[in-house]
Design a protein around this nucleic acid. Structure first.
Lengths: 345, 345
DNA sequence: TTGAAAGCGCTAACAG
DNA sequence: CTGTTAGCGCTTTCAA
């Protein structure tokens, strides 16, 4: 007699005097009429008595699905301290809980930019993966990743910034829309010298915002001059240099600044405090950032926020849709931004 | 001819004209001499050419291990916003990366206090689980969980607060030690009326700290009177009532307060600001909290910090040790606290 | 060295 | 309704 530490279907079948198949169905297919009610009852009670719990691995192998979804985040530092990711993860979790999936977090492979290669291999464990691209992903990185995933025949959905052409599952923010709204907001309040403090001009989100800003300004017969687009490369000193340049001017000095994300907004706040300026009197400040950010900031920033939580929720739904229904068409959804009225613009 | 979307060992074997076993070994057992060098080379090149990547599921079923570790956190709200958990997770990740494991985050089952039942079942996917107990876990909850895990024969390690008797893998902080150190610190600075602002007297950590405080005070011929132990139940209004009681006294007024955790320290700060007191002049404040907390707090708190990151790292190591070496004895480790010199005590 | 074959524990198609 | 059997794709004896 074989003795496994944990009972198998076969053990229950023997005890109940029925076939393995009967046990499998009695325990896992609640709706099936394949086994009679009383038989099922008996089987279930024996199973409980023996402390049976299914070997998910074997089940997954036979069913060819794990109900596991992997998370890929190309990010060097620990992902759990990142508020953006925390929000997205919470959204993802919500969907997963509702639809009965669990989340597999790949341990970073150590590789820099595109930590994906290894994660794609590991993803053999999952039914699909959610890819959160960060600001360390260039457009090329992202395209390449998409390519790899598609070649490997791995279902996925993407969060954050993608404006390429591939038909993929994607949940993101309408950055061009935010840019346009920001421009209109400031222009309507009479600002003529409007500047854009950003991070990196290679980032898709940056490009979208510029596009939107230009569109919005044009509607007011204004334009966004090259010198009013400043990219800090996410270095504070660089950001301060840019701001110095804008504020040191005698004429046509900048009167309003739109900050591309949370970190840049912080840089801007620090600069303004250090220089002894006040918002919105000396300069109007408008931000773009994750929802929730800014709540603890003083003075309260006026901003357009990105519904990160919803993005996570949606990305998970899109992915699961395409897992459960293989003919589902990929969908790209741009979630609407929100406006948070503060006192800085 | 069968056509699976992704190539299997059998496909490679056929193409290479060798057995399935040979392919398996050539690809996955680098050290084995079972297959000749040139054969291996050939097999590997064919595998690459065909874009082979192993079906981890089948492998796991055969090997009876997944190299997946599950995370169980009994917490109602999204875990990813919790700094304590974020830190622990980062530590866990570090170990997992080093030792080649991945993390499976169970979606909360919806149940309140002990979200474990379902998670234990799901854990059939993992080689073991890490259990992070939070302040919503009573002593009984924890004992029951340990019981369940052991009965189900599931390897696990625990993080945070456990002072029971079971020999388990555990990584936690030395709360009694912190209590004692806090008492000594304050007593040495001449304080006689020392109070302890805590959350819940049923929590193990609370009890340990009280024990330590008493021990430390005794060394200075002082003692901790019952009225100087205040538990807010983690409600701000309750905390304020307690503080009112301490500060409204005319004689023997409290001159130093030890706050049991981050949240209580914040409550204390708010109260002190609101009441227009100053630290440490009017009252000395000493805190206990997660490492890193307090860095952004002004004035900078004097505190004993808990090495949460290391706790995660260690808990993962302990668990993996016991997975990879079944005869490894469970170990309970109390990590040393650290002292952060601030200006409040 | 190598190949054949027996599992790992479960699901699903097939036959009664 | 029920049992038998053939996979799922891999690892690992066991013979050769």
């Amino acid at each position: 007699m074989k003795l496994t530490s944990t009972p198998r279907l076969a053990d229950i079948a023997k005890r109940a005097g029925v076939s393995i198949a009967a046990v499998s169905i009695a325990l896992h297919k609640a709706e099936s009429t394949r086994v009679s009610a009383e038989r099922r009852k008996k089987i279930i009670s024996i199973a409980e008595e023996m402390g049976y719990s299914a070997n998910e691995l074997a089940r997954a192998l036979a069913e060819r699905r794990t109900r596991l979804i992997g998370l890929a985040v190309p990010l060097r530092d620990p992902i759990f301290f990142n508020q953006f990711i925390a929000q997205a993860l919470s959204g993802i979790q919500k969907t997963m809980m509702r639809r009965g999936y669990n989340l597999l977090i790949f341990s970073p492979s150590g590789k820099p930019g595109r930590a994906t290669r290894d994660q794609i291999l590991e993803s053999k464990f999952t039914d699909g993966i959610i890819f959160i691209n960060t600001r360390s992903c260039t457009v090329a990185d992202v395209e390449e990743t998409i390519d790899e995933l598609q070649r490997a025949n791995i279902k996925f959905s993407m969060i954050n910034s993608y404006y390429g052409n591939s038909p993929i599952n994607y949940a993101g923010a309408d950055d061009a829309g935010i840019g346009e709204a920001a421009a209109r907001y400031l222009a309507e309040r009479g600002h003529k010298q409007i500047a854009f403090l950003s991070g990196q001009r290679t980032l898709p989100a940056h490009q979208q915002m510029v596009k939107g800003l230009k569109r919005g300004l044009k509607a007011h017969d204004l334009n966004l001059s090259a010198e009013h687009i400043g990219c800090s490369g996410y270095e504070e000193t660089k950001a301060f240099e840019i701001l110095d340049r804008w504020f040191d001017k005698r004429k046509d000095r900048v009167t309003a600044i739109f900050a591309a994300d949370d970190q840049l907004l912080i840089n801007l706040y620090d600069y303004i405090e250090q220089r002894g300026l006040s918002m919105p009197k000396d300069v109007a400040v408008l931000g773009r950032g994750n929802s929730g950010f800014g709540e603890h900031l003083r003075p309260r920033p006026t901003m357009f926020t990105i519904p990160t939580f919803s993005m996570g929720e949606l990305a998970a739904d899109l992915l699961i849709d395409s897992i459960e229904n293989p003919k589902a068409e990929p969908r790209r959804v741009f979630l609407p931004y929100e406006f948070v009225n503060g006192v800085t613009a």
